[in-house]
Amino acid sequence: MTTLGAVFRPQLPPERLRSVARAADAAGLEELWLWEDCFLSSGLASTSAALAWTDRLRVGAGLLPAPLRNVALTAMEAATLHRMFPGRAMLAVGHGVQPWMGQAGARVESPMTLLREYLRALRTLLAGGRLTVDGRYVRLDDVALDWPPTAPAPVLAGGLGPRTLRLTGEAADGTVLDASFPAGGVRRACALMAEGRAAAGRTGPHPVTVYLHVATGPGAETRLRAEKDRMGHDAPGLGVRGDAHAVAEAVAELADAGATAVILQPTSDEPDPEGFVRFAAEQVRPLVPRPLPVPGR
Rank of each mutant, 00 (worst) to 15 (best):
Arg278Trp: 01
Val20Met: 10
Val247Lys: 03
Asp25Asn: 06
Arg9Val: 10
Val155Gly: 09
Glu221Arg: 13
Gln103Phe: 06
Met193Ile: 15
Val7Lys: 09
Asp256Cys: 05
Ala200His: 13
Pro152Arg: 09
Pro205Tyr: 10
Val277Phe: 01
Ala235Leu: 03
Leu254Met: 07
Arg188Glu: 14
Val59Leu: 13
Thr74Val: 15
Arg202Thr: 08
Val247Ala: 01
Val20Tyr: 09
Trp100Val: 05
Ala215Leu: 05
Arg278Phe: 01
Gly28Val: 12
Thr168Lys: 03
Ala50Thr: 09
Arg297Met: 01
Pro10Met: 06
Gly217Leu: 12
Thr209Val: 15
Met231Leu: 15
Leu44Ile: 13
Ala50Glu: 11
Gly258Pro: 03
Thr132Val: 03
Thr47Gly: 15
Val97Asp: 14
Asp243Tyr: 10
Ala6Tyr: 00
Pro67Trp: 11
Thr168Pro: 00
Gly219Arg: 09
Arg69Val: 13
Pro207Leu: 11
Met84Gln: 12
Asp25Lys: 04
Gly105Gln: 11
Arg56Ile: 00
Asp141Leu: 09
Gly5His: 03
Leu126His: 04
Val210Ser: 12
Ser48His: 08
Ala179Leu: 05
Ala261Met: 13
Pro207Lys: 10
Ala121His: 10
Val277Met: 07
Leu192Phe: 02
Pro266Val: 06
Arg107His: 08
Trp35Ser: 11
Ala61Ile: 03
Val262Cys: 10
His82Arg: 14
Ala191Ile: 00
Arg290Asn: 00
Ala226Phe: 05
Ala179Phe: 09
Ala78Gly: 15
Ala121Cys: 12
Ala244Met: 08
Ser48Asn: 05
Leu287Trp: 07
Ala106Leu: 04
Ala183Asp: 02
Val262Asp: 06
Ala61His: 06
Arg188Leu: 05
Gly28Pro: 12
Arg88Tyr: 00
Ala127Gly: 15
